[in-house]
């Protein structure tokens, strides 16, 4: 009766771990918490194997589980901690360094300032390689909603990172303009 994880399935689950971790870390902003999330995801997946339809996208299924766990835990924490703002961004806040090089910290902190629904939509579509349709399934919303969230996330990131502010690009803007023109 109990579905047993077969060797291929074990390999498939293991193979999914790096992308699950990347998603969880980007979603939560914390490696420890992300690893707990991934572990809970694997455990839940294993105990719900009977619900997985062979032949469908295993990764999408796992991402759905992880996302649901993240949100239920998030809601729980918000209730427990006196932190009505759910200050994910606050925890993650890094001292803004005015370095000229591309720094992932800057990007991460900008990402952290996005509303959660926009962040996850952008991560699913822009980084994890899911289609808009798959992302919509994972987030249980309409495709148009995902598109709109991804779009708004990009615009917000561009403004946070000054990507769209030509004045801030300095001399380099000439080069960029030339390259783009």
């Amino acid at each position: 009766m109990t579905p047993e994880p077969e060797p291929e399935l074990r390999e498939a689950l293991l193979a999914a771990v790096p992308s699950l971790r990347a998603f969880a870390i980007s979603l939560s902003g914390q490696v420890d918490r992300a690893d707990d999330l991934v572990q809970d995801t694997l455990l839940r997946a294993l105990s719900n194997l009977h619900r997985f339809e062979p032949g469908t996208n295993l990764n999408a299924w796992l991402f759905t589980i992880l996302r649901n766990l993240f949100h239920s835990e998030y809601r729980k924490r918000r209730r427990e901690v006196e932190d009505p703002d759910g200050s994910y961004a606050g925890r993650l806040k890094v001292q803004p360094e005015q370095g000229s090089h591309l720094d992932f910290e800057d990007f991460r902190s900008a990402l952290a300032q996005l509303p959660a629904d926009q962040r996850e939509a952008l991560l699913l579509v822009g980084a994890s390689g899911f289609s808009y349709e798959e992302a919509a399934n994972i987030c249980e919303c309409a495709v148009g909603t995902i598109k709109s969230r991804v779009n708004r996330a990009r615009i917000r990131l561009a403004s946070l990172l000054n990507v769209d502010d030509i004045e801030d690009l300095g001399p380099d803007s000439m080069t960029r303009a030339a390259l783009q023109g």
Partner: peptide, 13 residues
Amino acid sequence: IGDQLRAMYDELM
């Protein structure tokens, strides 16, 4: 934006 996102993500992957 997309390039930065993927670069950050690749590092994690």
